[in-house]
Design a protein around this nucleic acid. Structure first.
Lengths: 351, 351
DNA sequence: ACAAGTCTTGAGAACGCTAACAATATGCGC
DNA sequence: GCGCATATTGTTAGCGTTCTCAAGACTTGT
């Protein structure tokens, strides 16, 4: 007989507790200056009636909307999506974002935007106008999109840039790409490798550059050259195949490769197998992302784990805290870790 | 100089176009009875000012909230999440859901709920009170949770149950599990296999049962027995290992296995490898889910593709259309397809 | 040309909540 | 106890939209 009953409003609570609307509001929002006895009484009423404030009404009257908007990259079609999406970015992001939001009484909403589209501003503008979020989380490659950061700055909406290292505007959070690449490279150096190649990501992702930096730095510390040891891919499988072939063709004494994505690492694994190279005996391999895939390859891949969930969570917390964003706010760094599996081994002749 | 400018409201548009608020509202909502000339004038103002209605205000005054809530299963910790989550459910769901929602001017919000928690009702109730969604999309295993469907029915909120086959209440959408299992089994039969085992999912997912049904039906059509050919797992890797070992131990002439999840299929692949069985030469293998993982295994797996995005999309469309939900609404079936890769081959001796 | 309808537009209330302010109660120093 | 500061509670006015209903403009039939 589905009554479709009207929901419980603040008015009902006020009446039940015999106080004014404002008092209930104060109790709900943890406002100061409410006598404990009254507060408990109101809380009891809230509990009994099962009152939960309407987000829409809160937004209407108050200054906050309790909504954090997360912007993700959109593949144009389902086919693109399935084909190219190697990482579980969205999964991770939601995990970190939603749980942290709800811990603070906020909600996270996801918007998919195609960076390459001409409508970026229009789409984002519409989303902002409709939702009026209290903060926006940008994920690569949007983090570096000046159109987007410009629009957000102009509208005065706080935002966090995930995977970005340049200080302003907004809060920048990196996932320690430079350090992670350095760590991975150093680990390979410890294992005795001396010719360590890198398959980098595309230039429009600035994190691609940092990873290269970390790799170079580690090599430089051991006075090793990096000329000819770099190939660039687009994070996708095909590009990984091309890059791996080029490297193996060009560098006869290559014993280790770091790939800037799991997909490119998988491609490298396949190329190595085709050429009769055993991983890790003949070739060590480290990938970036540590998506669920790499636990099930043969061999399972040693991988740099990007702390996406944690980083998004930190970003959300910053946005909710709403510290008046000082210009030149510090860049927050969440460290990546290296998960060692079975695709790395001492360099041939070192065992 | 971040002006943090007030957003454009319907009032601004009305003033700009020299009409009343109500007229603008009518134009925005495509209401009838507005003279074309006036309508164009208003549209021009909307365009020029970049007006987008505030979701919160629409919800406040109107009867719709323009929000569809999607309920997903929540793993308790990040570790659980990464460990157990084999599918890209959330990714898929968002793709299908968000794009379809935005096509109709709606928004999708995701809520993560732990089915096993005692707080299911409280959590869902809170989400509903706060958001007052126009519809809810339930994904397995929530689709079968009577606490949840009961609560939604009581509150009079339309909902869709993905992966559910029982007719009421709410809209049921299946992904053709029975048919897909039948299809996969039949394909193996065509390849000459006669001893085809199944590793099923856990009983609390009713789709597990349908898959078993489809498998049984195909076997029955060929007058083949299924006794002893069934093992039950929990969709996870470990359970797949146990099940595969049990089957291979028990059935000496086994030549094909259908696994009810990619994870369990990967485990089976590994067990086969350990025992020196070549897939697909000695053992054919078909998995369910077709997550990105199975394209990169060795060999790549033949898999049943669950049209998650499409199904969620259909669900959202149904909810938005808001046909008065007739009791005994037809169950919507979106067909799954079989993606043939390299883990299936003619039965030994049939080549 | 007039009544009765239909189409088009507008005015005002209402949605549930919070901000700002007003009113009342309480505490403190003397 | 008095007067002032402060803590506590209440009152009122919106926030931006849609709904309801009423008013005006236009048709149409006779």
């Amino acid at each position: 007989m589905a009554r479709g009953r009207k929901s419980v409003t603040i008015r009902d609570v006020a009446q039940d507790a015999g106080v004014s609307l404002q008092t209930v509001s104060r109790v709900v929002n943890g406002g100061p200056n409410v006598r404990p006895a009254l507060r408990d009484k109101v809380r009891a009423s809230i509990e009994r009636l099962g009152y939960v404030p309407s987000l829409a009404a809160q937004r209407m009257s108050g200054s906050r909307s309790y909504i954090i908007l997360a912007i993700n990259d959109r593949e144009r079609t389902l086919a693109d999506w399935r084909e190219r999406r190697g990482t579980d970015w969205v999964d991770q992001m939601l995990l970190g974002g939603i749980l942290t939001c709800s811990k603070h009484g906020y909600r996270m909403m996801v918007e998919l935007i195609d960076t390459h589209s001409d409508h970026v501003e229009r789409e984002l503008g519409a989303a902002i106008s409709a939702l009026q979020p209290d903060g926006v989380v940008l994920t690569p490659p949007h983090s570096e999109n000046a159109l987007i950061t410009g629009l957000l700055t102009e509208r005065g909406i706080p935002f966090a840039r995930i995977g970005s290292k340049t200080p302003g505007p907004g809060i920048a959070l990196t996932m320690g790409d430079e350090g992670a690449a350095h760590l991975a490279t150093t680990r390979l150096l410890e294992l005795g490798h001396r010719r360590i190649a890198m398959i980098a990501g595309p230039a429009q992702y600035s994190l691609s550059g940092w990873r290269v930096e970390g790799w170079k730095r580690a090599l430089a510390e051991h006075r090793l050259p990096f000329e000819g040891l770099l190939e660039v891919g687009d994070f996708g499988y095909e590009s990984g195949t091309r890059a791996a072939r080029a490297l193996l063709d060009r560098i006869p004494d290559l014993t280790a490769i770091i790939a800037s994505s799991d997909q490119m690492a998988l491609a490298t694994l396949e190329v190595a197998r085709d050429r009769g190279l055993n991983v890790p005996r003949d070739l060590s391999l480290i990938s970036f992302d540590n998506t669920p895939i790499v636990r099930f390859t043969n061999p399972p891949l040693t991988a740099v784990d990007q702390p996406i969930a944690e980083t998004v969570s930190r970003a959300v917390e910053q946005l909710i805290a709403r510290e008046p964003v000082v210009d030149g706010a510090p860049v927050i760094e969440v460290a990546a870790t290296l998960v060692e599996r079975s695709s790395t081994a001492p360099a041939p002749g070192m065992a």
